[in-house]
Amino acid sequence: MQDKGYIQIYTGDGKGKTTCAVGLAVRAAGNGYKVNFVQFMKSWQTGELKILENIPGVSIYRFATPKDFTWNLTEEEKEELIKNIEKGFENVKNLIMSNSCDMLIIDELVGVLSQGYLDEAKVIEVLQSKPEHMEIILTGRNASAQLIEVADLVTEMKEVKHYYSKGVVARKGIEF
């Protein structure tokens, strides 16, 4: 356990935000830290979650969403999505308040905030109440200036070139 934990953000339009967070989870668990990995906005099975489930000290919490892009959802599906997100954030608050881990990874929280699904001021208030030693990792596109201000480390993944633009779909073992 670290004496001082920080808030890190991995954002941007480039590939690798979740992958970076998974790497941090593996590194922390390998050093005997307790890691909680909370994931929003993703409901499909991924290789990284399969392996994380087998690492001692890592707990995974997923708040599944409909299996389509948010812009394709019906109003009813959006309401379900928002309920799942709110439930997930209650879980995040409980994990922080209970001081239940050394590292808390909140995958896709930045995207949830940028789409207006949670009140950013309330989220920032919860983040700032974290225990001194807890490291918090946030991922997702479009981090706001306010969220960046709260963070201690911000890395922006920038897409320079991606084969997706040539019609290559997400590949098992590489993108999921």
Rank of each mutant, 00 (worst) to 15 (best):
23 G>A: 07
112 V>G: 09
106 I>L: 12
6 Y>K: 15
52 L>A: 06
80 E>H: 13
109 L>W: 02
84 N>L: 11
119 D>P: 11
25 A>I: 04
126 V>C: 08
5 G>C: 05
111 G>K: 00
16 G>E: 02
123 V>I: 09
101 C>A: 15
106 I>A: 10
33 Y>R: 01
63 F>M: 08
42 K>Q: 12
94 N>G: 12
76 E>T: 10
32 G>R: 04
45 Q>W: 07
5 G>D: 09
31 N>V: 00
90 E>P: 00
7 I>W: 08
63 F>Y: 08
137 I>D: 03
8 Q>W: 06
133 H>Y: 13
176 F>S: 05
103 M>Q: 15
128 Q>G: 15
72 N>K: 15
173 G>H: 00
5 G>E: 10
50 K>N: 12
92 V>R: 07
113 L>G: 06
22 V>F: 03
71 W>Y: 15
102 D>E: 09
49 L>E: 15
75 E>R: 10
130 K>I: 01
18 T>G: 15
91 N>V: 01
49 L>H: 14
125 E>S: 03
172 K>S: 14
74 T>V: 10
112 V>N: 02
48 E>P: 01
46 T>W: 05
144 S>I: 11
67 K>G: 14
51 I>Y: 07
82 I>E: 14
120 E>K: 01
13 D>R: 02
15 K>S: 05
108 E>L: 09
159 E>F: 00
68 D>E: 12
126 V>T: 10
21 A>E: 12
57 G>W: 04
154 V>Y: 02
86 E>N: 13
130 K>D: 04
1 M>P: 08
122 K>A: 12
41 M>G: 13
38 V>C: 14
98 S>A: 06
40 F>L: 06
41 M>E: 13
20 C>M: 00
34 K>L: 04
42 K>N: 14
60 I>L: 10
98 S>Q: 11
133 H>T: 03
150 V>H: 00
175 E>I: 03
22 V>D: 08
119 D>W: 04
162 H>E: 13
154 V>N: 01
64 A>D: 08
135 E>A: 11
171 R>T: 14
160 V>T: 13
101 C>G: 03
80 E>D: 10
72 N>E: 15
2 Q>G: 04
134 M>D: 10
82 I>G: 06
172 K>D: 15
69 F>W: 14
84 N>K: 15
169 V>L: 14
76 E>Y: 06
52 L>Q: 08
66 P>R: 01
50 K>W: 03
32 G>D: 09
97 M>N: 15
146 Q>G: 02
117 Y>L: 15
110 V>Y: 04
22 V>T: 07
66 P>I: 00
26 V>P: 05
17 K>I: 05
144 S>L: 13
28 A>K: 08
91 N>M: 12
105 I>K: 02
125 E>V: 00
64 A>R: 11
